[in-house]
Amino acid sequence: MSHHIVEVKDLAFTYPDRTPALQGISFRIHHGESVAIVGANGAGKSTLLLHLNGYLTPTGGQVRIGDYPLTRETLREVRRTVGMVFQDPDDQLFMSTVFDDVAFGPLNLDLPVDEVTARVDKALATVGLSHLKERPPHRLSSGQKRRVAIASVLSMAPDILVMDEPSSGLDPRARRQLIELLRSFHHTKIIATHDLDMVVDLCERTIVMHEGRVKADGPTMAIFGDAELLESCCLEKPLRMQGCPLCNK
């Protein structure tokens, strides 16, 4: 199953105002892996994600999704393969009903109407929101919006899910439900986040970014066990790996 591989080689990107955002990033993510990308604010996480579906064109290096290098010709195929869930669901849900939103991707792939409806129903059932099909997105709660945003990507049947801060702005229960939902997916997952406890739950591998470079790449528990490394990248251990502040153990 080589086509679910995400490979980034010496990726460099400088914004037009000459801010160097990425300075030679390399990694390889295999089929079915669940990988967290963590790092301080401004470490380049979001910029990196925008390269994975070809929104930004690298100033150096290469991105390969599956068997293709990411180029203008493969853009369409890559965007179908890589499902992007953005940080603010209001940006992602732009149609007037939940149904239309989830159907947007499949319709652009020119699927027949029956297939589109079937996919929408399936995607909404997966995130448990079939009953909100006709709702306008602005009348949903944040948790519901986030799930609809995920459904709108699932309906395109992507092989790789890329998510920017999926747990931000959610209350504890909505966050927990989201984690359970993501855990049930068998896609290759790439999650950029500050929620390190979620990383412990979801990702067996973690890539630490710092000032546009990969500072560390390895098993999640090993990385979070390295206090020095975390400290140098402006991070902290996940709460559950810290001692209990109440009983000092």
Binding site: V82, F86, D88, D91, F104, G105, L109
Partner: peptide, 22 residues
Amino acid sequence: DRAQRIHLAMLSRAFSGEIKTV
């Protein structure tokens, strides 16, 4: 800014210039 982000979200869902609805 938001318009840009929305456009990005549309592009990531294979938008090619025409909005289709069922």
